[in-house]
Amino acid sequence: MKYIYYPGCSLKSTGRVYEESLLSVMDVLNIDYKELDDWNCCGATAYMAVDDRKAYVLAARNLALAEEQMKNEPEVNIIAPCAACFMVLLKTQKFLEENPEDKAAVVAALKESGLNYTGRAKVRHPLDVLVNDYGEAEIIKRITKPLKGIRVASYYGCQTVRPYSVFDDQRNPETMDRLMKAAGAEVVDWSMKTRCCGASLTGTVQDVALPLSYVIVHEAKKRRADAVATACPLCQFNLECYQTDMNSKFKSDLKIDVLYFTQLLGIALGIEPKKLGMNRLFTEPENLYKILEGGNRVYV
């Protein structure tokens, strides 16, 4: 099956590590994809706050582009790795299906600029593709460096599983845990899987956002996790890059590696760290390397 890959703005900048690691993993697994040509921003949470119809047109343009660029395929499967893009595309599709009047307006506007929107594209998250299309059994076959002895806390965040996504449970999702287990890691059972990290509030109202990120990191630490696995560029950014701020605000001394699930999976698949964007993290995950070598943890 062929997929069309919709990166979104974050995966080209702060979430570049996510793109690098996801594409490396898909290459190793021989998953066939091409990037959506001339894609535009999905609108994220901001567009909906200013003008909803513009927000729907913006997202629908990407869906229409995908339909056009995949017109020779039996199915249009879009991989949207960013949680916000994934949710917005799904939301747009659902909304337009339920509101024919709005759909007519959006379809007409797109037609003006030469695009056809039918709504036949399927919006897929990489977790969904890897677990449900590719399958854990196939992945296990290709694992060359199992993550033996590494305790991973799978953190899904909010918009990957809520509210329109159907590939996993909304309260206790498990796809990422299953992938981490397939990669040979030990998964941590915890209650923070879908708790909000603070999202864009870290940039706007930091006093409110820092505690939100802190409780997640703190809980992962308390459950003796060696790494937090994320599936969203904003979650990864908040949990990794604000650790110093959290520590100074809460007078703590927390240090934990926050990686994309694709990076962890990539290590297990034997992909070299540079191709997984490890060099772009604030600190390279020394603990993981040490444990894999059979040594002791550098920081606890």
Binding site: C9, S10, N40, C41, G43, Y47, A49, V50, L58, G203
Partner: peptide, 18 residues
């Protein structure tokens, strides 16, 4: 943030985080 994001995407089609 919402307003600036809105304008930036209206003008360029993509959001530049920096």
């Amino acid at each position: 943030l919402a307003n600036n994001f809105f304008k930036q995407v209206l003008n360029n089609g993509r959001n530049s985080e920096g």
